[in-house]
């Protein structure tokens, strides 16, 4: 019973990771690719770890699996955030199907500071086109 459950969990995890990789391979731009990799990959690794924990059924193993899962759930969004910010800043193009871009003009190119709406409005009224 525990073996079947473990095998099923690991299969589900591998399937999710495959879907994540497929998304990374065929999504149209960087940001949609990151959608695919952060969500499916964290849950996929989590399921595989749960499967391994069920398989061994030992306390130390379960603790390690829980530690890996917690760590991944904390770090994957942070990595995605840093990479997304850096990529946007470096000028990676958005997909042509993107409907609107609220970030445009909000970055101060020189100091790398991100301005909120009010500050940008003030700058635009001063006749200074940011970006």
């Amino acid at each position: 019973m525990a073996q079947n459950l473990s095998a099923f969990l690991m299969f589900l995890g591998a399937l999710l990771m495959f879907i994540a990789a497929l998304g990374v391979a065929r999504m149209p731009d960087l940001f949609t690719r990151m959608h695919s990799s952060t969500k499916s990959a964290t849950l996929g690794v989590g399921l595989i770890m749960m499967g391994a924990a069920f398989h061994f059924g030992e306390v130390g193993m379960t603790m390690r699996a829980v530690a890996i899962i917690v760590f991944l759930f904390l770090t994957a969004p942070v990595a995605a955030h840093m990479l997304g910010r850096a990529a946007y800043f470096a000028g990676v193009p958005l997909w042509e199907g993107t409907l609107s871009d609220a970030l445009r003009g909000h970055y101060d190119r020189r100091t790398h500071r991100l301005l909120s709406d009010e500050t940008v409005q003030e700058q635009l009224t001063e006749g200074d086109t940011a970006s």
Binding site: F31, T32, M34, H35, T38, K39, T42, F73, L74, A76, P77, V78, A80, H81, G84, R85, Y88, A102, L103, H106, R113, L114, L115, S116, D117, T119
Partner: peptide, 27 residues
């Protein structure tokens, strides 16, 4: 920001320097 990154079709990109606006990419 972490929870937004993990839920349906949204990904948090950056917080403005004055911490009032979060910019997200939605699918």
């Amino acid at each position: 920001a972490i929870l937004i990154s993990l839920t349906p079709g949204t990904l948090s990109l950056d917080v403005s320097a004055d911490k009032r606006v979060l910019f997200i990419h939605a699918m």
